[in-house]
Structure formats: C-alpha cells, structure tokens
C-alpha cells in the first residue's frame, strides 16, 4: 500500500502522540515525584533536593526546629524553602546538606 509522504509524517506524529495520550488517559502518565511515606527514609539518598524543610520534617517525623538544627540552619529559616535552594544559599551541595541529617 502506497503512503503519501505528508501522510507518513502525520502517522509518525499521530502514533507517537496517540500512545502518550493513551498513557495519559489511562493514568500511566506519571511525571511528578511523590513524597516518601513517613518513616520509610533510610538514608540521605531517599531525600531529594526538591524537598522543603516542612516535607523533610514530615517524612523523617521530626519537628521543624530539630530538622533545622541538624541541618545547621538558623531557626528563622523559611520552612517552605527546598533543600536545593538552601544548599545554594549555604554555598554547599544538596548532598552535603542532606548528609547532615544523618550525622
């Protein structure tokens, strides 16, 4: 069966987009990371740079002041800031910052 070149382009885009659309419609298209369940964090590798102090406190089941203390951050630190942002502010890396929580 002969296929017109322009139609071929539409088939390529339609097939690719169609499968992704099918994935979205059936709920398989998951892009966002979710917070690890409370109490499941074993090491600093389980903590992500995008986590805020509030989220770290929830996952580690520790009060926010304790988290800030372990991170060696001032008690006035905004708990909605992410580890990545705080690491940049502290001129360190998120990995180094996270490691402080397990010292």
């Amino acid at each position: 069966m002969r296929i017109k070149p322009l139609l071929f382009g539409l088939i390529v885009l339609g097939l690719f987009g169609g499968i992704i659309g099918g994935g979205m419609a059936s709920g398989y298209w998951v892009t966002k990371q979710s917070l690890p369940s409370a109490g499941t964090v074993q090491s600093s590798a389980d903590l992500k740079g995008w986590m805020t102090i509030t989220q770290v406190s929830e996952t580690l089941q520790l009060p926010i002041p304790t988290v800030l203390e372990k991170l060696r951050l001032p008690a006035s630190t905004d708990p909605s800031k992410s580890l990545k942002t705080l690491a940049t502010e502290q001129q360190t890396t998120p990995d180094e910052l996270k490691a402080r929580l397990f010292e």
Partner: peptide, 13 residues
Amino acid sequence: GGGPQGAAPLDTY
C-alpha cells in the same frame, strides 16, 4: 523546582 509542588525534570521526559 521539582517534587509534588513543582514540575518534573527533563529526565522524566
């Protein structure tokens, strides 16, 4: 930024 409150990184796409 990433996580549930942000947008997924390039790697996810």
